[in-house]
Every structure is written in structure tokens, then in C-alpha cells.
Amino acid sequence: QVTPQEKEAIERLKALGFPEGLVIQAYFACEKNENLAANFLLQQN
């Protein structure tokens, strides 16, 4: 279960064009650090 703040962060990451499953994995792998997760996702392409 995610908090409203976490859900907002996940939605912002999804808005970058990444699928939800990948976003969630990256977000939690980066210890819920939205900026770190965004950098991680962008570097995967």
C-alpha cells in the first residue's frame, strides 16, 4: 500500500512515459527517492 504522496510521485514518474510496473520497481529500489528513480529510469533508455 502506498501513501497519497507516494502515489503522486509514481504518477509523475509515469508521466515521463514509463510503464507503471517499471516506475514502481524503480521508485522502491531507489528507497522512494523520486529524483533518483527518475534518473534511473531515464538512464535505462
Rank of each mutant, 00 (worst) to 15 (best):
F18D: 07
E20L: 05
F40N: 14
N33T: 03
C30L: 05
L36I: 04
C30W: 05
E8L: 09
Q1P: 01
Y27Q: 01
Y27C: 00
Y27L: 06
N35H: 12
A37C: 09
L13K: 00
Q1D: 01
Q43Y: 15
E11R: 05
L42I: 12
L41M: 08
L36D: 13
P4T: 15
P4H: 13
Q43G: 13
K7F: 07
A26E: 05
A29P: 00
F40P: 00
K32M: 05
R12M: 04
L36A: 14
E8Q: 12
A37L: 00
I24A: 11
E31V: 03
V2R: 09
A38V: 10
E8C: 09
C30E: 04
C30T: 05
A9Y: 00
P19G: 11
V23E: 02
N33H: 09
Q25E: 13
K32H: 09
F18E: 04
A37M: 01
A26Y: 13
Q44R: 09
C30P: 01
N33F: 00
A29L: 04
E31D: 12
T3Y: 05
Q5Y: 09
I10E: 00
L13M: 06
A9Q: 09
N35V: 10
A29N: 10
R12A: 05
L41I: 10
A26C: 09
Q5C: 06
Y27P: 03
L41C: 05
E11Y: 05
I10C: 01
P19I: 07
E34T: 04
I10M: 11
F40C: 10
G21M: 14
V23S: 12
E11S: 10
A38M: 12
R12Y: 03
A9S: 10
F18M: 14
L22D: 15
P4L: 15
V2H: 14
A37W: 00
A26F: 02
T3E: 12
Q5V: 11
V23Q: 01
K32A: 06
G17D: 07
Q44P: 08
E6T: 07
K32D: 01
V23T: 10
V23A: 13
P19Y: 09
N35T: 12
N39L: 06
A37R: 00
E6V: 07
Q44I: 05
G21T: 15
Q25W: 05
A37V: 04
K7D: 06
Q43R: 13
N39Q: 14
F40G: 03
Q44K: 15
C30S: 09
I10N: 01
N39C: 05
F28R: 12
Q25T: 10
V2Q: 08
Q44A: 06
N45P: 11
K14G: 04
E8K: 12
Q44V: 04
K7I: 07
